[in-house]
Amino acid sequence: MIEVKGLRKSFTLGKRRKTRTVEAVRGVDLSVAEGEIFGFLGPNGAGKTTTARILCTLLEPDGGEAVIAGADLRKDPGAVRTKVGYVPQGGTTTDEVTAREELVLQARMYGIGKAEAVERTEKALAAFELTEFADRQCRTYSGGQRRRVDIAMGIIHEPKVLFLDEPTTGLDPQSRAHLWDEVRRLRDAGMTVFLTTHYLEEADALCDRIAIIDHGEIVAIGTPTELKHGVAGDVVTVGLNGSGPRAAELLDGRDYVRKLELGEDGLRLYVDDGTTAMPQIMRVLDAGEIHFDTVELHRPSLDDVFLIKTGRSLRDK
């Protein structure tokens, strides 16, 4: 449904002599299947919005190709527009108008006739549980209600692909769960959803497949389970006070340790099987007379994937 090859985009900042180039997207390749919720996970400034905007025809890429729902992005942006819906990061509802007016206008912008636009609006309002306050001005809506209007606008023309840029940022847990259900419903109705997020839980729970993007490059791509299994079977974290470097030295290279990350407050050891690795780790630490505060065993998370691929944690920011 979406095929992207070597997508690049850089921005030039500043004037005349003091120009600085920001390479926002540096050669992104990805492919999204029909009826899939595809997650684009990355920290602030990773290039998520830029990629989404390019794919929705809002920005012209510097290089690369993309075919979306059979339409070539460079040769025929007009065709792409009729096939994709886009819900921007900030939302775009206008304070002074009602949800109904917004939806009818958006439908008509897509060239839909008046009667049909009204009919579709009615359906969308019902589907997103907006009917109750459809005739109130948007200024009176809650964040979650506004977000639902935004998404309803994005799908009013029944696109094949929907781009959602950080759809749940700023929502309380309940509205977030609600919105996830809406997105799943869209997928179950056959829509392909491309969403960006910097929430690990969202990528994990909602997305069928994920691409992790950092500094404009994709560092990992796959289903959440694949990605996590690719890292390790289990993760052992050892809380150490100061003696981290020495412990790392002792444990590095052992055959049961796949990979090891030294953090400020301890060690993270990626192992195949925690139940056999943990006793061995503790024995080594004991033998080295290294005192540790805590030992924990857990399944790898997407954050571990991110940490391994980039050397940084997504959670700490």
Partner: peptide, 13 residues
């Protein structure tokens, strides 16, 4: 800046 125009730009208007 606010994205109001952007929202129209993704349509074929």
């Amino acid at each position: 800046r606010s994205g109001v125009i952007e929202r129209s730009r993704v349509t074929p208007v």
